[in-house]
């Protein structure tokens, strides 16, 4: 894949995630795609991720994948971005995330996701009020 194709694949993937286009996610993720999450320390499958996609939006009105910084290499890309969320109660939260992805023949074959789980409570607005 060319650098332009890899960059376009990256943007298509994140636009689809933002716009809840599971049909596009189905297309851009290879069937054997593996997704590794640093916060769980384990790998999940394409099927695991897509089947839980709508559940992951529970309690959230909107998510946007902002301030994307994308860099490509011969077999993939690294993206740094800010995930902004608006919860159904109006609370707004942000997470800073980095993903390293491998690609093949127009599809993503592996995703390594790095997040900070200590920020999850602030993101969701469930953090106890500090004195």
């Amino acid at each position: 894949m060319t650098e332009g194709e890899i960059r376009e694949l990256c943007e298509t993937f994140f636009d689809a995630y933002q716009d809840k286009r599971v049909d596009i996610l189905e297309r851009v993720l290879a069937d054997d795609c593996v997704v590794w999450h640093n916060v769980f320390g384990r790998e999940t499958t394409k099927r695991d991720n897509l089947s839980r996609y709508h559940d992951s939006y529970r309690g959230q009105r909107r998510r946007t994948y902002d301030d994307r910084i994308v860099n490509t290499f011969h077999d993939g890309f690294v993206i740094q971005y800010q995930l902004r969320g608006v919860m159904t109660n109006g609370h707004k939260g942000s997470l800073w995330i980095c993903i390293v992805a491998r690609v093949r023949d127009g599809q993503i074959t592996r995703i390594d996701e790095y997040m900070d789980s200590s920020k999850f409570a602030a993101w969701a607005g469930t953090e106890e009020a500090k004195p």
Partner: peptide, 26 residues
């Protein structure tokens, strides 16, 4: 700890770096 280190390079030196890790696993 699992870490992802993204570095931007100028003239053979690191000019900016981003380090991602999970402090929830501290």
């Amino acid at each position: 700890m699992d870490v992802c280190f993204v570095a931007y390079v100028r003239d053979g030196m690191i000019s900016r770096a981003y380090e991602y890790f999970d402090t929830g696993q501290v």
